[in-house]
């Protein structure tokens, strides 16, 4: 078929520092997102995603500098999410060297925002991030880090965002996030079957088999993971070889 499934390490960045810790023996400063991104690139990451969790507005500029530095030496696609509320925020990230910008709660509060930025900047650079939680027999969108229900059906929402021009869906299961028991593959498949655009599975990876399951059971086009790479439990390279050994098409 030809197209490789992508492995995307994700860095949570707070005021310019990687949080949750990163443990690489040969890295000088494991909290420096530029060093960590460089390392993931060397290991063969297909893309890198930065999630800015900075709480205060005045410290939010630091992510721009991080992206600028990474983009000047790491030549793979870079996605930035967190705190993107206005078209100007998108522009700032793209100008800094991001290839894609992930929009989450701003889309929920104002769906037309997605139309506006895909019209202006192109679908290829707009990722809609969805935090979904199971509620009875379906999944609902939650905001505020999974604390606030919105009553919006996640699958329908994903379809609507694709209609509005989103180039990709970053789908996080809030039920699985941080659990290390694997992606919610039923959720991933429901969304992957519903939308014509690529879907990135996120939330719950604890071992390499989970990445394989995300593709085979979930039908994901890409898999995103943070902690298994941060704590150097596995390298990106190991993850890719494992997936390739399970018969998944991977860029090695």
């Amino acid at each position: 078929m030809g197209l490789a499934k992508r492995i995307i390490p994700c860095l949570d960045v707070d005021a310019g520092r990687v949080v949750k810790g990163v443990q690489f023996v040969d890295i000088r400063d494991a909290g420096d997102p530029v060093e960590v991104a460089r390392r993931y690139n060397e290991e063969g990451a297909d893309e890198i995603t930065f999630l800015d969790i900075t709480a205060t507005a005045h410290e939010r500029d630091t992510i721009v500098h991080v992206v600028e530095q990474v983009a000047s030496e790491v030549f793979i696609p870079l996605t930035v999410g967190g705190g993107i509320r206005k078209a100007d925020d998108v522009l700032r990230m793209l100008d800094a060297g991001a290839d894609k910008v992930a929009i989450n709660s701003a889309a929920v509060f104002n769906p037309e925002f997605v139309k506006e930025v895909t019209d202006r900047f192109g679908s290829q650079c707009i990722v809609v991030a969805i935090d979904a939680k199971r509620v009875e027999d379906h999944w609902e969108i939650f905001t505020h880090g999974g604390r606030k229900p919105t009553g919006i059906d996640a699958v329908g929402w994903a379809k609507r965002m694709a209609d509005y021009g989103a180039g990709e869906i970053l789908l996080t299961s809030m039920d699985r996030d941080g659990t290390k028991i694997g992606f919610d593959n039923v959720l991933t498949r429901a969304v992957a079957e519903a939308v014509p655009i690529p879907v990135i599975a996120s939330g719950g990876v604890g071992e390499l088999q989970h990445l394989v399951d995300g593709v085979k059971e979930g039908g994901a086009d890409a898999v995103l993971a943070a902690s298994i790479f941060h704590f150097a439990e596995y390298s990106v390279g190991e993850a890719k070889r494992f997936m390739a050994d399970q018969g998944i098409e991977i860029r090695l």
């Binding site: 197209l3 180039g167 079957e193």
Partner: peptide, 21 residues
């Protein structure tokens, strides 16, 4: 056209996004 099936049994996604030979 996006009509053919990918290896996960779903129609090929458009845009074609990612690493190809």
């Amino acid at each position: 056209d996006g009509l053919t099936q990918g290896d996960n049994g779903l129609p090929l996604k458009i845009p074609h996004m990612g690493w190809s030979r």
